[in-house]
């Protein structure tokens, strides 16, 4: 009898220990590390079960420990039992999402600043973490159904609005669009030719610019060489001397021009006199005209000139006859 009691006790205790310890182990409770509880508020928790895993950067650090709707019904408060030695982010928030397509939901502690697009629930208590639940597949499917219904409604309305007149207008629009397209094509063809010319010109210009650049490079090199050799200084000095010469030449030229103007005035006056003499000659007035018109006068003049010549020769040969010098 005593042996029976022992065996029965062993089986019962073993089964109880296995059941309790196994349950705690599968729920993630470990005796070796302490836990601390943080709370988060959500607008909804999807299919998150009590006891679901809590992860930080993909590593399980705890379990969901209690899910309850707030007394005012506006939010759901979720307790998270996490390892006490884990340091949470400064702006920690809790994200609830399916871990797979098979209904196993979990919570993950994330940095809120790293998820700016998520509309986290804003708790009034700063000690409570903000939470957000990602819509599950069924909710997305329901939304897709709603979108499909809306599309069906729109399709129906389009079908109603699409009458024969609309079709005719649409045909005309299509024809117009076709014409516009042809014109655009022609314009594009023309523009393509112009663009080709432009490209060719640009290419030529580029080539010339390249050559000019090369030449400029050579020139600059030469200039640099000249600068380094002191030739420029010499050229500048020569140029300065030449400029002074030019300045003096310009002064002389200005003076010459002034003299020339005087000469021209004299010439003009002389020509006037010559004109008057010419007129007198034509009219037969004056001495010269008389000389020309009367040969006697000319002969007498010639005789006077001859006598004058003889007189000068005699004066040169015999000056004493005409000049007497007496000093005392």
């Amino acid at each position: 009898m005593r042996r029976n009691e022992v065996w029965v006790g062993v089986v019962i205790l073993l089964s109880v220990v296995v059941a309790v310890a196994g349950s705690f182990w599968l729920r993630g409770y470990r005796l070796t590390r302490g836990t601390t509880t943080v709370e988060a508020l959500f607008s909804g928790v999807g299919q998150l079960p009590d006891g679901a895993s809590v992860k930080l950067r993909g590593v399980t650090i705890g379990r969901v420990n209690g899910i309850a709707v707030e007394p005012d019904g506006t939010a759901v408060r979720v307790g998270l039992a996490i390892n006490a030695d884990v340091q949470l982010p400064a702006d920690a928030a809790v994200l609830i999402a399916p871990e797979s397509m098979f209904g196993d939901w979990g919570a993950e502690i994330v940095s809120r600043s790293a998820n700016p697009r998520l509309d986290f629930f804003e708790p009034s208590d700063p000690g409570v973490l903000p939470g957000f639940s990602i819509p599950d597949l069924s909710r997305l499917t329901a939304t897709a159904d709603q979108i499909a219904d809306n599309l069906a409604t729109i399709t129906d309305r389009v079908e109603i609005a699409f009458t024969q007149e609309t079709a005719e207008n649409l045909r005309l629009v299509i024809e117009n669009v076709g014409g516009v397209s042809e014109q655009l094509a022609a314009l594009v063809d023309a523009q393509i030719g112009a663009v080709d010319d432009l490209v060719e010109n640009v290419r030529t210009s580029t080539s010339q610019v390249s050559e000019a650049a090369a030449l400029a490079t050579l020139t600059l090199a030469e200039v640099e060489r000249l600068l380094s050799g002191g030739v420029v200084d010499s050229i500048v000095g020569d140029t300065r001397v030449t400029a002074a010469e030019f300045r003096r030449l310009a002064t002389d030229l200005r003076e010459t021009t002034t003299g020339l103007s005087t000469t021209l005035r004299y010439a003009d006056s002389t020509l006037v006199r010559f004109e008057r003499i010419g007129r007198e000659l034509e009219t037969g007035e004056g001495t010269l005209a008389h000389l020309l018109a009367d040969s006697t006068v000319a002969v007498q003049t010639q005789s006077v000139l001859m006598q004058l010549t003889l007189l000068l020769e005699d004066f040169r040969e015999n000056p004493g006859r005409y000049v007497r010098l007496s000093i005392f």
Binding site: I12, L14, S15, V18, A19
Partner: peptide, 13 residues
Amino acid sequence: AVMFPAVTLLAST
């Protein structure tokens, strides 16, 4: 009533 659950828990484990 007592032993069936115990045996079942052990068997399931």
